[in-house]
Design a protein around this nucleic acid. Sequence first.
RNA 1: UGGGUUAUGGUGUAAAGGUAGCACAACAGAUUUUGAUUCUGUUUGUCUAGGUUCGAAUCCUAGUAACCCAACCA
Length: 554
Amino acid sequence: MSEEKSLNFIEEIIENDLNTGNYKSIITRFPPEPNGYLHIGHSKAICLNFGLAIKYGGSTNLRFDDTNPVTEETEYVESIKEDIKWLGFNWSQELYASDYFDQLFQFAVELIQKDLAYVDDSSSEEIAALKGTPTEPGTNSAFRARTKEENLQLFMEMKDGKYKDGEKVLRAKIEMAATNMLMRDPIIYRIKHAHHHRTANKWCIYPMYDFAHGQSDSIENITHSICTLEFIPHRELYDWFIKSLNIFPSHQYEFARLNMTYTVMSKRKLLQLVNEGFVNGWDDPRMPTISGFRRKGFTPKSIRNFCEKIGVAKRENLIDLSLLEFCLREDLNETAQRAMAVLDPVKLIINNYEDGKTETLQCENGPTELAGKRNLEFSRELWIEREDFMEEAAKKWFRLAPGSMVRLKSAYIVKCESFEKDENGKITTIFCSYFPNSKSGADESGIQVKGTIHWVNAQNALSAEIRLYDRLFNVENPAADERDFKEYINLNSLEIISNAFVEPSLLNAKIEDRFQFIRKGYFCLDKDSTKDHLIFNRTVTLKDTWSKEAKKTD
RNA sequence: UGGGUUAUGGUGUAAAGGUAGCACAACAGAUUUUGAUUCUGUUUGUCUAGGUUCGAAUCCUAGUAACCCAACCA
């Protein structure tokens, strides 16, 4: 029995198109401009476009919208392809708007011949001045009345490089009094003597977005061209070009882009974070880029599930970061290997454990039998987490305190006998006794303890660097904040722990391997890591009801 | 003050005139050799005002609020 799941509005449109025979199958496209790295907002569009094609048996093209040579670079093309593949999607064709430059040029010629386009010699200021405002109609340019022949000749000359940047533009001849500002004779070609990442110096005129996007969709027989809400006003123009050129009628549909608490999605702001050194590059684990999430230890599946859960609609939204974290933990809980790591070590000595003795214990690798077990060595001196000891036990404290007992994970129950401090009052060593008959899996002690703590063996523990990340902004909706974002950026978003200890099995970890450090959270091996200097990134903490409890009793 | 789009718990999203549901979050409890996981339960909502109807989140009227549009960016 498949569970009845309601459709989003785009799925309804598609099912209707399929049921009525408007289309036999669908083709979608994901059309990034290669001028930056993909972020979590893009993953919503990616999951939508690719997901729709998978669900309805169609296909999805990856098309780079590379119509502005001054902002685009091959580096971005490569990172975009890598990110989409990492998310788990395959495009049927890798295409470029620049592949269509000849065809688009012909379309422009056709519009001129139909008297639907003209060359305007006005400066951009003059064009803006004649455009009017949302409440006042625009006025016709003096160049609007040129003959087809003259327009054609001038357009050819533009193409041939006879004019400098900004000297002339080609505009669609529509309606200067239109209520939709985009219909007031929009510019469709501009002169840019610039090097293009693919066509090099072949062209010195480039089509504008509106004269490239819809036509590219049409050339590829895209049935459902899905974009974000801010393109709604463009749809009228999109349709006008398709009708005027009498080409395959692709249709545009718009959904609300993803916004998420405590982060920003704007490419401009992301670039600023990188350029001004608030983060260490586009793949810094604090960045909302796909490469940042990857480096932080996120799984592709968790991001796909997240995109599924947030839904698709047309209203503005601000998704709670906790939903993404939920999807992450849900996946990691099932897949991450368990290991023990002590982030803030304090020495624990077992008084009645024979000095020099070592025994091997078994510890489960994951929540199910399938994960198997690994061996751990146990001896007299261990490192435990400083925060697992309290000199004076709080209410409901289950961990170590003078006289109290806890289980050392997969090992023995110990009782705290005494402790030592240095001159600053900092605990230096905790002394315990252990119950030899309380060994994990063969406990005959009959002792019940409420707490279990993790540990590493002081003899063979590996030292490691651990990077803890926090949100980049202190305010819930940084995008809506009018202030300069330097005023609400979280300056403590990265904490580096250089003296942590991890269990020896972690020496074999590979880059991006993911682990749950028991009781501490999920971590992955960072790309900067080496065998001599292990580095782990904290992906996300575990849910922590104790810290809430502790706050309450404060 | 022109045009367009959107309004459902704290957040996101369903319900196509007929029981306002689901998920996250929050809260309470059970289980637990991770204060994790798992399980059980609880709290919280239809923008406002009128109207139509046996019955309205849904239809009508009038408001209100938010977002988008005046780049030779996409």
